[in-house]
């Protein structure tokens, strides 16, 4: 069928791909801390030492938790296991809403208190017309 050289080249390419995939896998595995864009409130709670550097926390904006006092916005990020209080003043994205995803960037003051310097909205993968959404909610 195929010549010896062809088979050799096939295994050569195969070996290169396997080796490189494994290498990349190990690198990404060990760098996981830096690859993830944000931590969940539960992950932040178990951080052993208080972090001084800027971190990002992501989760859902807890329903009925948004309040604005003296131009300062405060709300609660939840992952339905633990919660963190966030204070922020500045621009908020259009999709920032109660019950929707959010990523807050800033500094952790203590276990339950986070001072954000930037708020990003995270939306989910569901796309539908408003009528369909209304029909779904009626059910």
């Amino acid at each position: 069928m195929y010549g010896r050289k062809v088979k050799l080249r096939f295994f050569f390419v195969f070996l290169i791909i396997v080796t490189l995939s494994l290498t990349v896998f190990l690198i990404l595995k060990s760098l996981e801390e830096n690859v993830i864009y944000f931590k969940s409130p539960s992950e932040v709670k178990v951080l052993s030492e208080k972090q001084q550097k800027k971190i990002r926390i992501g989760g859902m904006v807890k329903t009925d938790s948004i309040s604005i006092v003296n131009k300062e916005l405060s709300f609660v990020i939840t992952d339905f296991k633990s919660e963190i209080n966030v204070v922020y003043s500045g621009l908020i994205p259009n999709l920032f809403e109660e019950g929707k995803g959010v990523v807050a960037e800033g500094f952790l003051k203590d276990e339950n208190f986070f001072s954000a310097t930037k708020i990003l909205a995270k939306h989910d993968e569901n796309y539908m017309p408003p009528e369909v959404k209304a029909a779904l909610e009626e059910k």
């Binding site: 990404l28 864009y37 992501g58 990003l120 939306h123 993968e125 539908m128």
Partner: peptide, 30 residues
């Protein structure tokens, strides 16, 4: 890595809406 990045790690980008094996989360009119 591009394909599964949204499933493996926390990303700002949302997961895929169109799935071959499971139901797509995008309405047929879109």
């Amino acid at each position: 890595i591009i394909k599964y990045s949204v499933d493996w790690w926390n990303t700002l980008h949302q997961p895929a809406s169109i799935n071959i094996l499971s139901k797509s989360t995008i309405h047929s009119s879109m």
